[in-house]
Design a protein around this nucleic acid. Structure first.
Lengths: 213, 213, 213, 213
DNA sequence: GATGAATGAGTATTCATTCAT
DNA sequence: TATGAATGAATACTCATTCAT
C-alpha cells in the first residue's frame, strides 16, 4: 500500500468518525439546533478540524444522506441481480433490503428527510448535489424495475410502477419517521420493527392480485 | 356579543393573519432561513407585534402544526360519528378525511416533523406542548377505533389496530414528505394526489380479508 | 373648591398612585430591569396612562427621589427652626428626622442611589433636574448649618461642617443600602433600626468634644 | 510551566483585559447605556469574544464586583494577621485597608450596589453567585472579629460587633457613593479622601470608650 | 494535519413610547 | 382621560467559519 493510499484511507477514517458523531447529534437535535461545536465535541475533535473534511455544515449534513443512499444501492443491486427469482420473492428481498438499511443506520432515515428542504440544498456543492440526485434516481429505478416485472408477470395490480416504488419508500421512511417522532426508536425498538413488518405485509397483500391462499 | 368576546375574536383573527403569513414564508424559505422580520413583513406587521401573539419563533412554527391537527380532529370526529356505516366505508371516509387535510394545508405535514427535535420542544410553552400531544393522541385514537371495529367485524386482517393506524398515518405523511422532497408538490400536484390515491388503495386492499375478485 | 382645583387634586392622586407602584417595582428590580409595563401592572393602569403623568421612564424615576427630598426638607426645616435648642439636642432632632424619613419611605432611599448615575440624569428635563439639585443642596445646607452651630459652640470637633453633614447623610443612606443589599429590610426590620440607632450613636459620640459622662 | 498552565494564564489575562475595558465603559456610561459592543470596541475585541469569557452582560458586570471583593479580602487578611497589635491600631489598619481598596478601584463600589437587584442575580451563574456571597461574608467576618477583640479588650463600646462592622462598611461605601453622586470623584478626589478620613476619624472616636482628652 | 480562540455578520427578542379608539 | 395594541429601533447573544500557531 502506497503512502498516498494510506493517507487516503486515514482521511476516510476521519470522515467516518465525524459523520458518525454528526449523525447522532443531528438525529437528536435536528439540523437547525445542532452546532458545529456540538458535532466536534461528540467527535472529540476541534471545530476547525471538521472543515478539513467537509466544506461546510450543510455539506456534512448531506454527506450523511449520501452514505445511506450508497448502502441502499448496494443492497438493491444485489436484489436486482437475482433475476431468476419470482417477482413475489424479489419483493420480499426488497423489503428485506430495506430492513437492512434500517438496521445499518436507523437514525439516518430521519436525517434524510431534513435534507428535503430547499434551504439546505442551496448550499451544497454542485458535485455533491448531483451525486445525491443520481443515487436517489438510481435506487428508485431499481425498485421501479422490480414492480414493472411484477406487473408484467400479472402478479401485481396494474398501477404505475413508479408510484408503487414511491409508495414503498414512503411507507418505509414514513413509519420510521413517525415512530421516531413518537420517541420510541430506542425504548421500544421491537415495536418499530413489528410495525415495519406489518406495514410491509399490508403493502404486499395490497399489491398482489391473488390472495395468499 | 360582549366587548370581551369581540376582543378575543379580534385577537384570534390577528393570530391567524400571522400564521398565514408565517406558513407562506416558512414554505418558501424553510424554518432556518426564515427570519421573524420576513414573517412580519409578509404579515404587514412589525416584528415586535409577532411576539404579542407568539412566545417565540419555535412556538409560532409549532402553532402551524397545531392548526392542522385541529382540522384533522374535526374531520376524523365526523368520520367516527357515522357508526352506522360498514367498516369498509368508514375506512374510505378516513382516507377521504386525510385527503381533505392534505388539501387544507399541503405543506404543513412537513412542518409537523420538525417538531420531533427535543431542542425545538424546549422552547415551547407547556400549554402548547400539552395541546399538541393531546390532539396527536386523540386523532390516533380515533383512527385506531375504526380499525378495531373493522377487525372485530372480520373485515380486516387481525393485526394490532394501533399498528394499522400508525401505518396509515405514516403512509399518508410519508408520501407527502417524499413527494415534496422530489419537489413536485406544486409543479405536479396531480401526481401527488394520484400517488396518494394509489397508496390508499393498496393499503385498503392489503388490510381487507377478502380480495376484490 | 373650583373644578380646576378638583381636577388638579385628582391628577395628583393619580401621580401618587403611580409613584407608589413604581417605588415598589424599582426597589425590587432596579431601574434597568423594571419595565414600564411592570409598573403599569402594579399600579393597575395601562402603560399608556403612565405617560399622561410622567414624560418618560427616567422622569418617573426621578420624581420618586424628588418626593422623598421634599419630605426630608420639611422635617429638616422643622429641626432648623428650633434655634433655641442646644446643638446637641438639635443633632438628636436631626437623627430623629432621618429616622422619620426612613419610616416615611424605606424603599426610596435605595432608589435615590440609582439616580446618581449620570446616564439617568441625562434624560431628565432641565426643570426636574434643577429642582432635584436645589432640594439636595438645600437639605445639605440645613444639616451643615446645624453642624456649624455645634462647632461654634465648641460642642463638636472642629472639622469642616460640610464634610460632617455629608458623612451623616452617607452613614444614614449607606446603612440602609447595605442592610437592604443583605436582604433584611423586610425580614429583620428591627435589626436595621437597631443598626441605624447604633450608627447614629457612634457618630454622635465621635463628633462630640466631651464624653457623655 | 506546563502548556495547560500557560493557557490558563493567557485566559486569565484576557479576562482582565475585558474587565479593564468594561470598567472604563461602565464608569462612563453606566450599566444600562453600555452595550457589549462598546466594551468590545474598548477592549479591541469582537463582541463574540466577550462571551467566551463571560456568560452574559450581567455576569461581566458582577465580575467587576468580585474583583474588588477579592482585593478587599487580601488586605483584610493582612490586617487580621497582626494579632500582636492593639485593637486601636488594628482598627487603624482596617481603615487604611479600606483606603487601599478605594485607591485600587474608586468607582467599583458603585457597581457593587447594583448587585442587590434580584433580577440581576437571576442572570448570574450559580458559581459566581456563591463566590460573591462567600467573599462578602468572609470579609464581614474579618471586620467583625476585630471589633470583637476591641470590645473584649474594653477599648470599644459594648455594641454588637456585627453591627459595628456593618456600620463601618456602610460608612465607607456610603461616603463614596454619596460623593460620587455629587460628581466629584474625579474632579475633587482630594475632597473625597478628606471626607473619608474625617468619617473614619469620627467613627473611631465614636467607638472608643476613652476620649482623646 | 489539528487546534481552538477569535471573528463579526446575522437575528431573535425586548421595551420605551405612541396613537387610534 | 384611559386604553393597550402596535411599533421599530436598539441590542444581547449565537454560531458558522477562519487562521495563526
Amino acid at each position: 500500500m502506497g503512502i498516498r493510499e494510506r493517507k487516503e484511507r486515514e482521511r476516510e477514517r476521519r470522515r467516518q468518525q465525524i459523520m458518525v458523531a454528526a449523525k447522532r447529534v443531528f438525529a437528536e437535535k435536528g439540523l437547525n439546533k445542532t452546532t458545529m461545536e456540538d458535532i466536534a465535541r461528540e467527535a472529540e475533535l476541534s471545530p476547525g478540524t471538521l472543515y478539513l473534511y467537509f466544506k461546510n455544515k450543510d455539506e456534512l449534513y448531506a454527506s450523511l444522506s449520501l452514505r445511506i443512499l450508497q448502502y441502499l444501492i448496494i443492497r438493491l443491486e444485489h436484489v436486482n441481480k437475482s433475476k431468476s427469482l419470482e417477482p413475489e420473492q424479489r419483493i420480499e428481498s426488497l423489503t428485506d433490503a430495506l430492513f437492512d438499511v434500517y438496521d445499518f443506520d436507523p437514525l439516518m432515515i430521519i436525517n434524510m428527510f431534513h435534507l428535503q428542504s430547499s434551504e439546505t440544498l442551496k448550499n451544497l456543492s454542485e458535485e455533491l448535489l448531483t451525486e445525491i440526485e443520481d443515487l436517489s434516481r438510481k435506487s428508485l429505478n431499481i425498485i421501479t424495475n422490480i414492480f414493472e416485472d411484477g406487473i408484467k408477470s400479472d402478479v401485481f395490480i396494474d398501477r404505475h410502477p413508479v408510484a408503487l416504488a414511491d409508495i414503498l419508500w414512503s411507507l418505509f421512511s414514513g413509519v420510521i419517521l413517525w415512530e421516531s417522532s413518537k420517541k420510541i426508536i430506542d425504548e421500544r425498538k421491537d415495536y418499530l420493527r413489528e410495525t415495519l413488518r406489518i406495514a410491509f405485509e399490508v403493502f404486499n397483500r395490497g399489491c398482489r392480485k391473488k390472495k395468499d391462499s
